Computed example of a mutant assay.
Amino acid sequence: MQDQLSQTFSALADPTRRAMLARLSTGEANVSDLARPFLGEMSLPAITKHLQVLEKAGLITKTRKAQWRSCKINGDGLKDAADWMEQYRIFWEESFDRLDAYLKTVTANPSEGNKNDSDQ
């Protein structure tokens, strides 16, 4: 069984699911509206499967009111992934800042290094 973060990244790995999330970022939509851009290239059961993956990953929630099945984006699922990535962004940013500081000290006075060589 996958942990929630793995499910989130797995769900985000598919371009169809990312497109569905992009559509939902503009507001709630029913399943038919979400399916419409993909119907020429995939079946309705395949679209339903994509929505199930997004729901299981916690990225969307689905509601049912009579015949209307609407979906909306769940920001909490995306926040967990963003928080996980943030710790690595901070690590790399600090590492690059240290590298930048080191390179500035090494290249601060390149002529001094040559001067010492000629004195010998």
Rank of each mutant, 00 (worst) to 15 (best):
R17F: 06
R17K: 06
R18Q: 12
R18A: 03
R18M: 10
R18H: 08
M20Q: 11
M20R: 03
L21K: 06
A22P: 02
A22M: 11
A22R: 12
A22T: 13
L24D: 04
L24C: 07
S25K: 09
S25V: 05
T26V: 10
T26Y: 10
G27H: 08
G27S: 08
E28T: 13
N30F: 03
V31H: 00
V31E: 03
V31M: 04
V31D: 01
S32Q: 13
S32I: 08
D33S: 11
D33P: 01
D33I: 04
D33R: 09
L34K: 00
A35K: 00
A35M: 05
R36D: 09
R36G: 07
R36W: 05
R36H: 10
P37R: 02
F38I: 01
G40C: 01
G40Q: 12
G40W: 00
G40T: 09
E41C: 00
E41Y: 00
M42D: 00
M42Y: 01
M42L: 09
S43Y: 00
S43G: 08
S43V: 02
S43P: 01
L44Q: 10
L44E: 08
L44M: 10
P45E: 00
A46G: 06
I47Q: 02
I47L: 07
K49P: 00
K49R: 14
H50I: 01
H50G: 01
H50K: 08
L51F: 05
L51R: 03
L51G: 02
L51Q: 04
V53C: 01
V53M: 02
V53A: 05
L54D: 04
L54I: 05
E55Q: 15
K56T: 12
K56Q: 14
A57P: 05
A57H: 02
A57C: 08
G58F: 08
G58L: 07
L59P: 04
L59A: 07
L59C: 08
L59Q: 04
I60R: 01
I60C: 05
T61D: 13
K62W: 04
T63I: 09
T63Q: 14
T63G: 12
T63P: 03
T63F: 07
T63Y: 06
R64E: 09
R64I: 06
R64F: 03
K65T: 15
K65P: 09
A66K: 15
A66R: 15
A66F: 11
Q67V: 11
Q67A: 15
Q67E: 13
W68D: 12
W68P: 00
R69Q: 15
S70G: 14
S70F: 08
C71P: 03
C71G: 06
C71K: 03
K72Y: 06
K72R: 15
I73K: 06
I73D: 01
N74I: 00
N74H: 11
N74L: 10
G75E: 13
D76K: 11
D76H: 09
G77M: 06
G77A: 08
L78Y: 04
L78H: 07
L78Q: 07
L78E: 07
L78R: 04
L78N: 08
K79T: 14
D80K: 14
D80F: 09
A81I: 10
A82G: 08
A82V: 14
A82M: 13
A82I: 15
D83Y: 08
D83T: 14
W84R: 13
W84I: 02
M85C: 14
M85L: 15
E86T: 07
E86I: 01
